[in-house]
Design a protein around this nucleic acid. Structure first.
Lengths: 190, 190
DNA sequence: ATCATCATGTAAGGGGTTACATGATTTA
DNA sequence: TAAATCATGTAACCCCTTACATGATGAT
């Protein structure tokens, strides 16, 4: 899985392990991230499988680096994965798990916590919207061309925007529901 | 983490390991699931930590079962977790990762795949909406009481509804964007 | 002086999935 | 007759996170 993430980044151009790790932050990393300690061994595995090759680039005033390039086999592997069936992912979300048990705790405190999360998601949302505006300017007409790499960036950003907006709204709704009944109807207050 | 999921279920009543595994499907399991092979050892760990106890219930025509009950320490642990800080989770979603590289593949084929996913999410959405309607009837006025267990069920269902709706819409938007430019580049925005 | 960035690795450990193992009863 | 449900466990493996390790340059 991580291998395909790396191949997807390398399809956009050659990169070092360090750059790939950075690339797994922004923006695709919001939906697939990894640490460098996972990236370096995975690159070695991909090279062993003949999907990438590397060349050492010597740098003055910076450490030398290994720049990886996708092979034809690598491109083929990426395309095969793209058209293969995709499982609907099973999620794990600690906050929703907490929401399930929130009736066990003080509503006011839970509401504060949810509002803090609402703010965090609103911040992510604003960031993604800013990025989409930026990308829209830079991509020009290519934005709507499904064969342009900008198209993929746009797709991920729009998913991020929708996700964050929904999450923010849910947090705000739940916070409101919690303090809505805080003083009004609570016959079971300790 | 799994331990808190189990404690959250046990806060609603005593259950066996088998029942807990089932409970981790429906509806909270949509945001936190586990296999029985993970549940049984975790229950042993919780018992070792004094957070739950069990008693063996003999059954005719069914295998004997161990019914677990939360201790006072278990309830306290659950509440401490509920009020503790929650990290904003880092997601992994294979379909979004594929979307990032979809410019590398045939737009028509990718669009078909996305429409299949849109249908799957629409089905989940319908199921959650059906459940929420059912819960609304059964819970009555307790639905709006933040101290009722129904409140937690409602919160999870509403998150599921929002999540699935957003995911479905994104799939449909992306599918449209992909085949929109299949023959000519027509401007398609959601 | 200390921290962040660039740059690449290894090792230990935790959480989770899949498979192995057993066995009765009910339903299709 | 085959499958699903109830019921509880163990073992192997994979993926991922955290920490260990090294070392130069530039910024605060």
């Amino acid at each position: 899985m991580l291998g395909y993430a790396l191949l997807g980044l390398l399809a956009r151009g050659d990169r070092s392990g360090y750059d790939l790790t950075q690339g797994l932050k922004d923006p695709v990393g919001y939906f697939w991230h990894a640490q460098h300690s996972q990236v370096y061994p995975e690159l070695a595995r991909l090279e062993g499988a003949g999907l990438v090759t590397h060349s050492v680039v010597e740098q003055a005033e910076r450490p030398d680096k290994k720049v990886y390039r996708q092979t034809d086999a690598g491109r083929a592997a990426l395309r095969a994965w793209l058209t293969a069936d995709t499982e609907v992912p099973r999620k794990r979300d600690e906050l929703v798990l907490k929401a399930y048990s929130m009736w066990q705790t003080e509503p006011a405190r839970a509401a504060d916590m949810l509002r803090a999360h609402a703010r965090a998601h609103a911040a992510h949302l604003a960031e993604f919207e800013r990025r989409l505006a930026e990308v829209t300017l830079r991509a020009g007409t290519e934005l709507h061309d499904p064969r342009s790499p900008w198209f993929g960036i746009q797709a991920v950003l729009r998913r991020g925007i929708g996700y964050e907006r929904e999450y923010r709204d849910w947090c705000e709704w739940l916070a409101g529901a919690l303090d809505g009944a805080g003083q009004a109807l609570s016959p079971t207050t300790p």
